[in-house]
């Protein structure tokens, strides 16, 4: 890896910005260069909220990323807006609880994550973003799962119950992505 860019998109309240920040914190802990760029202004109020995280081994130049390697989309408007921007060969992580379509692009790795169902089963509707984060890490390993866990411990350390739920769903998302990719590899061979 020299530089990896991922856009996180959804609507307000889905924890999109926080998911991006957790990735950013983990990147810092791993000694990587990081930029986290939000959308701001009128876009903050309704519609899609999104941020882009750049993780790099070297000094990060342009913070404007039009074509990221990956997009993690939490709702349909975000799917429609950002799927076309992903670089060929890139990664698309889809919240399949709220998005009932899949991409027609055949040059992407697509991971479907029923994040809302997973969150309800895990016991908190608030951890949708952590399921998505887990799946993203499982699909690209841009930072290590263990370090994301450390970031979560760092941020949620005092809230033990919440930490447990977060850890569980992070792992579930991660495993789901791993299994999806492994399953495809098996079916293709």
């Amino acid at each position: 890896m020299s530089q990896y860019e991922v856009t996180w998109a959804g609507f307000g309240g889905q924890g999109v910005m926080v998911a991006g920040q957790l990735l950013a914190y983990t990147g810092i802990a791993e000694g990587k260069q990081i930029v986290w760029i939000p959308s701001y202004g009128p876009e903050m109020r309704g519609g899609t909220a999104y941020c882009t995280v750049v993780v790099s081994d070297r000094r990060i130049g342009s913070p404007i990323i039009r074509f990221p390697q990956a997009a993690v989309v939490f709702n349909r408007p975000s799917f429609d807006k950002f799927t076309p921007t992903i670089k060929p060969g890139g990664l698309l992580v889809v919240n399949s609880s709220l998005i009932d379509v899949t991409t027609e692009r055949d040059d992407l790795t697509e991971i479907l994550v029923p994040a809302n169902q997973m969150a309800m089963e895990a016991g908190s509707p608030k951890v949708v973003n952590i399921a998505m984060l887990g799946a993203f890490i499982g699909a690209c390993e841009i930072v290590s799962l263990d370090n994301v866990k450390k970031t979560l411990e760092d941020k949620l350390g005092k809230k033990k119950d919440l930490l447990g739920i977060n850890m569980k769903i992070l792992q579930a998302g991660y495993d789901l992505a791993k299994n999806t990719i492994a399953g495809r590899a098996t079916s293709e061979s």
Partner: peptide, 10 residues
């Protein structure tokens, strides 16, 4: 500028 103001970096 707005970019420096809004973005996050370590």
């Amino acid at each position: 500028d707005g970019m420096i103001g809004q973005m996050m970096e370590p």
